[in-house]
Amino acid sequence: MHRLPRAATVAAAALALLAVPIAAQAQAPAIDYVALGDSYSSGSGAGPYTDAACQRSLKAHPALLAAELGAEFTFVACGGATTDDVLAEQVQALDAETDLVTIGIGGNDIGWTEAITACITPFQNCTPAIQEAERKATEELPAKLEAVYTEIETRSPDAEVVVTGYPRLFAARNTCDAFGSISIAEQQRMNVGADVLSAVIQEAAEAHGFTYADVRDEFTGHEICSQQPWLHGFTLTDVPYHPKASGHSGGYLPAVLGAL
């Protein structure tokens, strides 16, 4: 691994935002930043979208981070993406000059949407769907993440890589969502599944020397059914069970900046 020089560049740029006047910052070389991932990276739910097919939003945390760092920004994260999609369609944006990569991927590989759907369906026991998602997370996802992370290393060997996780969705204190069809016990069980997924992603990321940005603490107190949710619950007018713009600015962005 040879990431220290490029990592130092990214860290120095972040510190420069706090310590150096804007005019001086403008003279520094821009960071070459590429954002990969799925809907939690593209900004599905944050709107409005610059790319309707992938639901890329300028309110998504990668776009906010690029603006914060004054980076040259390539945004290829796409709603619905799996690890296979990253390998087939997104990693081509990387090269040896890439300084910074963020990636959030894995939820679609384990059928997390199907588990949520089962839980919001009245009179359906969603525990088997959650258990199947956990099985895929622990038995199948590590090899898929390994392939993606190895490809990132190969294409951008000097880049600083920050891997983002997923928040727990539910406050698990009341039954506000989906007309009360998701019980507190089901919400708690979904949150356990989210923790399983986070643990798998963190272990895979750190095995490659990547930095893991855990967003669960930032979203605590802002889950679905909290007083100030940063996530959409069941809705027909937006993208359900995805972060709002506030979830990106208040949850993901501080976690990634903290990781840098």
Score class of each variant (00 low, 15 high):
residue 135 R to G: 02
residue 219 F to W: 05
residue 239 V to I: 15
residue 210 F to Y: 14
residue 21 P to T: 08
residue 41 S to L: 06
residue 23 A to C: 00
residue 41 S to K: 07
residue 200 V to R: 11
residue 25 Q to N: 14
residue 15 L to N: 09
residue 136 K to S: 02
residue 24 A to C: 07
residue 57 S to L: 08
residue 244 K to E: 11
residue 56 R to F: 07
residue 87 L to F: 04
residue 187 Q to F: 07
residue 75 F to P: 03
residue 5 P to R: 13
residue 134 E to Y: 02
residue 80 G to D: 04
residue 39 S to G: 14
residue 60 A to W: 09
residue 209 G to V: 02
residue 147 A to P: 11
residue 136 K to P: 01
residue 33 Y to C: 10
residue 143 A to S: 13
residue 183 S to H: 01
residue 129 A to L: 08
residue 171 A to I: 00
residue 174 N to D: 14
residue 15 L to S: 11
residue 50 T to K: 09
residue 145 L to Y: 09
residue 91 V to K: 08
residue 141 L to I: 03
residue 18 L to C: 07
residue 81 A to W: 02
residue 101 V to H: 05
residue 235 T to H: 04
residue 26 A to V: 14
residue 99 D to K: 05
residue 159 A to T: 06
residue 233 G to P: 10
residue 131 Q to W: 01
residue 56 R to E: 06
residue 178 A to D: 05
residue 253 L to N: 08
residue 106 G to A: 14
residue 93 A to Y: 11
residue 208 H to Y: 06
residue 59 K to V: 01
residue 188 Q to W: 00
residue 56 R to G: 00
residue 85 D to F: 08
residue 253 L to K: 04
residue 132 E to W: 02
residue 25 Q to L: 15
residue 27 Q to A: 13
residue 45 G to I: 04
residue 19 A to W: 10
residue 199 A to Q: 12
residue 119 C to G: 09
residue 204 A to H: 03
residue 212 Y to S: 03
residue 242 H to P: 04
residue 88 A to K: 15
residue 160 E to F: 01
residue 14 A to L: 13
residue 30 A to M: 15
residue 46 A to L: 03
residue 206 E to L: 01
residue 28 A to G: 06
residue 6 R to G: 13
residue 106 G to R: 05
residue 15 L to K: 12
residue 92 Q to R: 11
residue 255 A to T: 01
residue 134 E to Q: 15
residue 62 P to D: 12
residue 200 V to K: 06
residue 224 I to R: 07
residue 41 S to P: 06
residue 185 A to I: 00
residue 13 A to M: 14
residue 72 E to T: 15
residue 64 L to P: 08
residue 157 P to Q: 00
residue 155 R to N: 06
residue 196 V to S: 05
residue 187 Q to V: 03
residue 82 T to W: 11
residue 85 D to Q: 11
residue 119 C to A: 15
residue 133 A to C: 04
residue 46 A to K: 12
residue 198 S to P: 00
residue 73 F to E: 09
residue 139 E to S: 10
residue 133 A to K: 05
residue 250 G to N: 07
residue 257 L to S: 02
residue 245 A to S: 14
residue 98 T to H: 05
residue 105 I to R: 12
residue 236 L to R: 14
residue 26 A to S: 15
residue 240 P to I: 03
residue 192 V to R: 09
residue 240 P to K: 07
residue 144 K to T: 03
residue 237 T to W: 10
residue 17 L to C: 14
residue 99 D to L: 01
residue 177 D to I: 05
residue 7 A to G: 13
residue 255 A to W: 09
residue 57 S to E: 09
residue 214 D to Q: 02
residue 109 D to L: 04
residue 258 G to E: 05
residue 72 E to R: 15
residue 160 E to S: 05
residue 3 R to T: 15
residue 257 L to Y: 02
residue 247 G to W: 03
residue 77 A to D: 08
residue 49 Y to Q: 10
residue 71 A to W: 11
residue 119 C to R: 07
